[in-house]
């Protein structure tokens, strides 16, 4: 079990920046609960990105602690009480900054991987 836990932790670390970005991006369309976020990421990525709940919830709580998102208990359309997350002003700023970083990063990677195209 010890090893398993470590594996989870490694994965969080590996995906950390990326997952944060995905979560923030998802929340741009409006407040959403944890389950909704995981579904949204899966759907928007064409079922390619499977978000591990073991990483999602720590990421949500960490972003909340960093005050990039805030949470509120609301009743969902299915009349269930759920914790809804939404972007804060700081979160929005962070998102746009991270997005431009990410596009620079992916362009750079693409450049390296396909040198003949540049």
């Amino acid at each position: 079990m010890a090893e398993k836990k470590e594996r989870y932790q490694n994965r969080i670390e590996l995906l950390q920046g990326t997952l944060d970005l995905l979560v923030l991006q998802t929340l741009q369309w409006g407040p959403q609960h944890g389950y909704g976020i995981s579904i949204a990421i899966r759907n928007h990525s064409g079922e390619i990105l499977q978000v591990d709940t073991g990483s999602l919830y720590p990421a949500l709580h960490r972003l909340e602690k960093q005050k990039l998102i805030k949470a509120e208990w609301k009743v969902s359309e299915n009349k269930q009480r759920a914790k809804y997350y939404q972007l804060t002003a700081a979160g929005k700023k962070h998102l746009s900054r991270e997005r431009s970083k990410w596009s620079q990063f992916s362009q750079a990677i693409a450049g390296v991987l396909n040198p003949e195209q540049t």
Binding site: Y8, D52, T53, G54, Y57, P58, K65
Partner: peptide
């Protein structure tokens, strides 16, 4: 099954609280 290890997720999440 999809969710994975519930208690472990909770524990790692609690870690995020500091």
């Amino acid at each position: 099954r999809d969710f994975g290890n519930v208690e472990l997720t909770k524990e790692v999440t609690r870690d995020a609280w500091g």
